[in-house]
């Protein structure tokens, strides 16, 4: 496990990729623990029958569509990354823009979804389960907005034709895929529990 490189400079460079990767993974671990706690609390509330929530089919379909949009965004980002890797690591592709746009569309889809649930009569004040749904979605959305900010930073770097370290592009991609996967898990969890 211990790095076997003698020179200090070499050590730093050698560590660069692996260390970043590990840092990102540990951060994911932290975020996962955050959501595990939310979901466990949610399950406890369901188990104690503190409230019930019943969603009609349209809501579920809309939720499914927004989920697919987010998955699309993730896939597009991956495409932009592989294209960027193939071509001289400077150019910015349309996939990249599409990915950002899909991400924003997902956020608006979420807001719309919340509105639908509220209009079905489940407000955060009257129903703790609905409150948890908004909370979990909201915290996820905050992470998504953070992800979008980083994407914006990456976009700025790319249009300035600056050299971006491949590991950064890749790690931003990981974060984006991670948020997508997280949302999929949350969505499936809601479907099963509700």
């Amino acid at each position: 496990m211990s790095p076997q490189v003698q020179s200090a400079d070499l050590l730093q460079i050698e560590c660069d990729y692996e260390t970043s990767k590990m840092g990102v993974l540990v951060t994911f671990g932290g975020i996962i623990m955050l959501f595990v706690t939310f979901l466990a609390t949610f399950s406890a509330m369901v188990a104690k029958e503190l409230a019930t929530i019943k969603l009609d089919e349209t809501t579920i379909i809309v939720a499914g569509v927004t989920t697919i949009i987010l998955i699309m965004s993730s896939v597009l980002f991956h495409k932009s990354y592989s294209l960027w890797q193939k071509i001289n690591e400077v150019t910015i592709s349309n996939y990249f823009y599409a990915s950002i746009i899909f991400g924003i569309v997902f956020l608006f889809g979420q807001i719309n979804l919340w509105k639908m649930i509220v209009s079905a009569g489940f407000t955060s004040h009257s129903n703790v389960l609905a409150g948890m749904v908004y909370l979990i979605g909201g915290v996820h959305a905050v992470h998504l907005i953070a992800g979008l900010t980083v994407l914006g930073w990456l976009w700025y770097q790319l249009i300035q034709s600056r050299q971006v370290k491949p590991v950064r592009y890749q790690m931003i991609g990981w974060f984006w895929h991670f948020l997508t996967a997280l949302w999929c898990i949350i969505f499936v969890f809601f479907l099963i529990v509700l």
Partner: peptide, 8 residues
């Protein structure tokens, strides 16, 4: 994990 000196 990553930055232990060689031999550490």
């Amino acid at each position: 994990i990553r930055l232990r000196a060689p031999g550490m």
